[in-house]
Design a protein around this nucleic acid. Sequence first.
RNA 1: GCUCAUAUAGCUCAGCGGUAGAGCACUUGCUUGGUAAGUAAGAGGUCACCGGUUCAAGUCCGGUUAUGAGCUCCA
Length: 641
Amino acid sequence: MKITLPDKSVRDLPDGSSGYDVAKDIGPGLAKSAVAIIVNGEKKDLHDIIEKDSTASIITIDSEDGLEIMRHTLAAQVLAKALKNLYPKSYLAIGPTIEDGFYYDIETSQSISVDDLEKIEKEMNKIISSKSSITKRIASKKDALKVFKSLEEPYKQTIINESDQKDNFQLYYQDQDSFVDLCKGPHLPNLSFIGSFKLTKVSGAYWKGDSKNTMLTRIYGTAWNSDKDLNKHLNSIEEAQKRDHRKLGKEMDLFHFQDEAPGMVFWHPDGWTIYRQLQNFVRQKIESNGYVEINTPLVIDRKLWEASGHWDKYRENMFITEIDEEHANEKRVNALKPMNCPGHVQIYNQGIKSYKDLPLRFAEFGACHRYEPSGTMHGLMRVRGFTQDDGHIFCTEDQIESETGLFINLLSDIYADLGFKDFNIKLSTRPEVRVGSDKTWDKAEQALESAIKNLGYPYKLDEGDGAFYGPKLDFVLTDAIGRAWQCGTFQLDFNLADRLDAEFVGEDGKKHIPVMIHRAVLGSFERFIGILIENYSGKLPFWLAPKQVVVASIVSEVNDYVMEIQELFKNKGIRTEVDLRNEKISYKVREHSSKKVPIILAIGKNEKANNTVSIRRIGSNDSKVMDLNKAVQEITKENTI
RNA sequence: GCUCAUAUAGCUCAGCGGUAGAGCACUUGCUUGGUAAGUAAGAGGUCACCGGUUCAAGUCCGGUUAUGAGCUCCA
């Protein structure tokens, strides 16, 4: 039998050889660290017999694939067994690997909490210390069903029953033990390959991810080849928690939430300063990109929402208001706008539009309210009241491609200025709940896809994820610690203009329906500010920082000089505060540093005598003495985007 | 919306049947101190809300609301 290795070398082995034999043939070191094998592109257990001439490569424990297999074995063989040992009356569901770790879902009548994790870890370590070999046997459907029937594992039986494979069910065993798991494999050849792990959390999860099904208990863990790697991972989680915008928002006194208005932000002075800076920045960008800013009502009669289709397709997300009958002559049902589009069409509809008016680009910092389910809210990232940097472009079909290009330019320009260099594009097509005919959707999807294709941007297709009125492009940016955030959106709509009677007079003198493009760059200010805070760990770029400079006195006799300095900076438009309190300079430095003020000027007798300032920047532990006027000049220069 | 957990002083948290605690912050003294916490004293709480058990409830039980972690949504 001939085995071709990745380096194209060919080895001749006796028929009936396994992956382990191949590894041993290459070298004893490899045989020692081998955990599985890839045969003709398929991952197999190390001791599976290779049936014919094949290409193969050995998976070692220290490779990516090896780590993945180790996590898988840890979940399916160790965690599952530990759970069955501790909770014999539970039923096993599934236990896959995920990024950095694994989880196992079980159904249990006893509730399992984080306090139980230590106990489970102990049981897992006991199982691992046996260093048992893992063996498998191939069973027919009937045979496999029999095994899991006798073990009283209903979920495993369901998996087997719903499987379209006939007989190739793999049952994994550990030495003489009675534990069996159904698994597609591969697994480690034995438990001595298990590295360092930690169970991290417990939560509920639906069987097969469907909220109509039973809620199972899901136990999460993370696993690595060494203690060092495990600790590195645990540290990076801690680091991410340190930049949680909810924590920083409190520490920096930017905003708060309270029970009476769940999902609605109370912006404090410093938080609102960031908001206004960001808004002015976007305003300037869109104005120079041919948009005109408008503003439309928050509360609008249901009739308009019926006409737009929102009442039908979006009602469960809408806040409805009703006038108190006793005080009103007529009863009217209104909705708080969840989107700005119908309002924009109303402004478009005032007066007759010509093809010469197109493309017409309306922009609005539109405050929207959506009734999000209670479990989905998350700080500033997912709220019920938010303001979009919204815009609607009314144009002809011929203009779609150029508008797509202009928008992507605007978006990448804004992202770059805010410190985000990378973004990905996703093309989403018709969802199940939608308005408009399939023919219209065909046209819209084709138009958007050909626009993005012709412009040459790479994109990924996401079928069925479009808005109810049209297909869209979504823009996903990557932050400083590699997380992805979907922010910008560009949605092509061939329906709404028609529904709300928007028209224009074409060159032919006849009436036509314009194409409407819904678009946003940041998405919402609330969410985007949350992203900015986390991206920068609260240390915002100078132009965005709510307090830019704090001038702190070291002794009270320099107070007049401190006030003078503040005046100079304020005159240059720098947001500057003084700290004249009777406290030590180290106390003041600590306090303003923890509030992430970019620049602290410490002022003592020397500075006053020489007309200088001592500059300390956030993130740096030294200070630099500089001539006052030069400092004003230099820092003013930094106050640009 | 679902599962589990949590809710005590402005903040972070301890207390878990028997007159409400700590650190920081706050106020007032003293201290004018050179780059991440000077010092002493004082003030501050219907223990989320509603109901139940008990001689007695932050403490045990039920419900409501909110928050957190997931799930499901959303985009």
